[in-house]
Design a protein around this nucleic acid. Structure first.
Lengths: 362, 362
DNA sequence: ACGAGTGTTGACAACGTTGACATCCGAACG
DNA sequence: CGTTCGGATGTCAACGTTGTCAACACTCGT
């Protein structure tokens, strides 16, 4: 505590010293509440409450005295107590469960969502599930106990029936990216099938017939849709054995990298590769970018530097997804009680250099 | 809604029925609390509480009855009430203020932080300030009213004296990326000076003498450190007029793009460019990647595809920053009450292709 | 048979806030 | 001068939970 002795003339030094006296500790004397403020101002606690909340019927002079007492004490209203008193549905917390909020897709989605709800005085609590079903369960419970006003879920679970009771109790759920199963709730989803179909059609058009696919965890519905739709398009074009060049469960960049290497070592190797999300595309790029004659590549999800790298992608707008999610959610909070609505957002193929590589001497 | 009012013997039947039909709405009949559970199980509310919390001294049979009642009612403990009862410092919320949580730097930092605190049963509330000082003020207040257990701040404000009272009241603050001013609090920072110095030295070594700098908002301390340290190194090498190629306040990608174009149009144009953060680097790349003979480039912050693009960067580890932040924060929550600690994390220059471009015929 | 333990349960207060209602005071009105 | 009115303030209960303490029903050892 005696620290910071060297009398340095630097501004910072002084500051450092000043604080050493009152470092935060666990044994604080309890924050002042309305009671303390009221006592100090010499009024009843109700009057103090009125004064601080700007209700009418408080004498000007009284209000000033209360305000001053509050300032001196460092009073800060206790939001929890207020919410408790006002009854459950005044919480200002919105919960969001995502697989990995470090992933640009989720973080942009969350960011877009947060920007919208912020204007309503709502705050976003985000938690990573790490795509783990048990985590998801536990964290959902924690958020619900915290009485979040609504819940945004990018779920990994195969079913959401366990949430039915909560849903009936009036907590709005909005599922993002992955649809609810066994529960009728709002959702904001991507046109995965459409996007995957476009990708396949694009490659077929360019003459590719041996196309590798690297997919994410096979249990995720998004991945299933992208893979099966892509495959269906290939099959429709007469490529029956498309599954032979399919590798799934490449959930992280390293695994994706290995999967791509695996595909390339085959004989004959695919002349094009479809990667079903941004992480996998990244892994693929790590492998392909140093090859003299890499196969064509199409990835699902836009990449930060997609245009500069010249990677053909099936793109969409995560921030907009966040905004749409906010819209559904806020309408529920505003009283809309109709049937569940699903918003399916479009995807768009952006052809760039990486798909212009011809099938070559396959 | 008309259904199931008919005389059912079950106490709660009416409510259950009501729920089965309708979508979630604002007019819910109030969630069941301990009172309802206790009534249904035929015990006192204290016994119900004991049973559900797994305290000792509850008969096996009683516990089962309570549990069943709770399940049937869809009971969920009210975390707010619990925290209120238990006294202020049991909140499980950690607040985090960031400029833009859609930026990979912040989102990775937040993700790393969240992963650490999650194991302690803590949840992270993140809010975007959009680098706006008024937003930051308001949102800080909101988080503090919500009684977050600790606050992580990437601040835009020039001073943090207004937080002193809170700090004394025992709320741990951890400043990230940008240091506290007028307040002695923990912080996790980057070695901005070191990194910028390395960048400058690297370019000088390669023979560059006319170097452009594109910086972020000039009021941000991080940017100031990076710019001034870079400049100091240039000046020490005899380049006195380095400020002539300095453009600041390029806060978004578009502005950065224009700034770079501006630099390139000069005569003579700089033979190298230093960009002080990831957004600006992105803007620069958009311009440079289609030039036949672009200037050399070094950027602060790693890029997702930095290795593939061959961009020389001054890198660091945002996720690790998040972990370090969590460490300081958790130690405070565990009772550490010593002086403020600043953790300065190292940065590292990764030379790649973009800086290997020679000064040319400058 | 009696006090001491042990297991089980309940009544009550309190956390900090606010809505409902009551009270008090002075001014305006008939 | 009594009545009414409205502004200003206070009292009380309640939100849902848990800690404290007391009470009860047993069993056991003496």
């Amino acid at each position: 505590m005696i620290a910071c002795l060297p009398a340095s003339g630097r501004r910072r030094a002084g500051i450092l010293c000043a604080m050493t006296e009152d470092a935060p500790g666990p044994h604080r004397p309890g924050r002042p509440g309305l009671v303390e403020v009221a006592a100090r101002a010499g009024v009843s606690i109700k009057t103090a409450s009125r004064a601080l909340n700007g209700e009418g019927y408080v004498a000007h002079e009284t209000r000033q005295r209360v305000q001053q007492a509050a300032d001196e004490l460092g009073y800060r209203a206790n939001g929890m107590a207020r919410e408790l008193r006002l009854g459950g549905n005044t919480s200002t917390l919105i919960g969001m469960l995502g697989g990995d909020l470090g992933n640009p897709f989720y973080s942009k989605l969350a960011s877009g969502l947060e920007r919208e709800v912020r204007f309503r005085g709502l705050q976003l609590v985000t938690v990573n599930t790490d795509e783990d079903t048990r985590s998801e369960q536990r964290l959902t419970d924690a958020l619900l106990e915290r009485r979040v006003r609504a819940l945004v879920v990018a779920s990994t679970l195969p079913s959401h029936e366990h949430l039915a009771a909560e849903h009936r109790h009036g907590i709005p759920f909005v599922f993002v990216d992955r649809p609810p199963v066994g529960l009728s709730a709002d959702a904001v989803l991507l046109d995965n099938r459409g996007g995957a179909h476009q990708a396949a059609a694009h490659l077929l058009e360019l003459g590719h017939t041996r196309i590798g696919i690297v997919g994410d965890l096979s249990r995720l519905s998004t991945n299933q849709e992208r893979v099966t739709s892509f495959g269906a398009t290939l099959r429709a074009a007469g490529i029956a054995d498309w599954r032979e060049h399919l590798i799934e469960d490449a959930h992280d960049v390293d695994t994706a990298q290995r999967a791509v290497l695996d595909l390339l070592r085959r004989d004959p190797a695919p002349t094009a590769i479809f990667t079903t999300n941004n992480r996998i595309t990244t892994g693929a790029l790590r492998v392909l970018h140093r090859l003299p004659a890499p196969p064509a590549l199409i990835g699902f999800d836009e990449l930060d530097m997609g245009d500069i790298l010249g990677v053909t992608v099936v793109t969409h707008d995560p921030e907009n997804m966040g905004r749409q999610t906010a819209r559904l959610l806020l309408e529920r909070l505003d009283g809309y009680a109709g049937t569940a609505r699903w918003v399916i957002l479009p995807t768009r193929l952006i052809p760039r250099a990486s798909s212009r590589r011809p099938p070559g001497t396959g």
